[in-house]
Design a protein around this nucleic acid. Sequence first.
RNA 1: GCCAGGGUGGGGUAGUUGGUUAUCCUAAGGGACUGUGGAUCCCUCGACCCGGGUUCGAAUCUCGGCCCUGGCCCCA
Length: 410
Amino acid sequence: MLQKPRGTRDFLPDEMERRRLIEERMRAVARRWGYREVCTPNFEYLELFTMKSGEEIIQEMYVFEDKSGRQLTLRPEVTASVLRMYVNEGRVLPKPIRWCYFADCFRYERPQKGRYRQFWQFGVELIGADTALADAEVIMLADDLLHTSGVEFDLHVGHLAPMKHILRDLPPDDHRMVMAHLDRHDPQALGHALEAKGLGDRTELLLALSECREIDEVFEIAGDVPERPRIEETFTILDSQGIRYRPNFGIARGLDYYTGMVFEAFAPNLGAENQILGGGTYRLAYLFGGDDAASCGFAVGFDRIMVSIGDFPLEYEPVVGVVCTPEARTRALEIARAFRKTGIRTEVDLMQRSLSAQLSHAARTADYAVVVGQRECEAGTVTLKNLHTGEQRETTLDDAVAEVMRFGRC
RNA sequence: GCCAGGGUGGGGUAGUUGGUUAUCCUAAGGGACUGUGGAUCCCUCGACCCGGGUUCGAAUCUCGGCCCUGGCCCCA
């Protein structure tokens, strides 16, 4: 049998309805904050992503050549596309720009729990606002979004400035290496690496910084960080609005292009892949030929949210099965149309089943059967049967529709 | 790319010291029943992941691959 490609999934209707429900909640939250949805191409020039993230990421992407020899790739993320779009068409729009997106992305990686080769991200980008409140708004929106989706999560908020301040003697290329060791909670490797650079005295500071949970202590450790007022203002805003988060100035993983505030969220009930959200401030527009607009955004790992939430019951809507004899087929289709017009899910037999077989099928798949044969056709009525109670009565079509609409409201 | 455990009808399973026609449940389609049910009975459909090797004989042993689950690495 033909298999689906590795790392992809099929979604049956029950799961699809759950996904759509959560997706719609996220859209609604973003809309309430003024973030309107945009859509960018599923594939882009390879260059867009290598400019942003470097040549190494090619091996993690679905890269292909089109019939004209263009180097293209399925998008591995959406931020680069949104910023390209901003440079292409958004520069004249009034600032700040608030956009959101929901899109599938593709990465050629080894699948595991919560990690797939096709996966969905919900994200927002705030472009053109460079203030503490802008940073805080994006975090508060992330918090609102996660709460509204129903997932349990821990929110970590940090800023890269204190760490960069401690490492200010090091060339930027070395920052990455140091951050990688820090992120892996590998103090020995970190110590050795700094020792080799003649900065062994910084090891203690960095470790203390990543352990630190109080903002005041951050500056005792890191010293006179120029960004201190901005950082404090952001945290003050979050506190004033009752946002629950953990200050974490050790956040460093894979955040090459972030410039200041960074934040992440984790779902405690997931496995190795438990990060469900990541974001921060960055500057990308100039890379794609635009101005040096300050930006701030985040992306939610939608599939991980769904894994973390697990199955939940969907709101139930009544289903009607129209059961008819062959001579009543035209009337049956009219009846089905009348039910559908009021929004009721209505199904008719397509398999030329006997009346008894139609009813038997309806009993498994519907809440009501509407039986129509020659008798009802001549009398201008329908027989409405409640398949849960077994009660049935002959009545008018309008009355039958009205009864089904009352279903589940008592 | 690496490690561990797996792969038997659509779903769930039995069978693996090699041995007849591969077990059972369920789902799906039909019938018993041409104007009334989910029960019951009957029928139908449908599987040993793929390929090589060992053997008289492989679902079973062996090697390689693919895929699944989880972990490592990575995580824009």
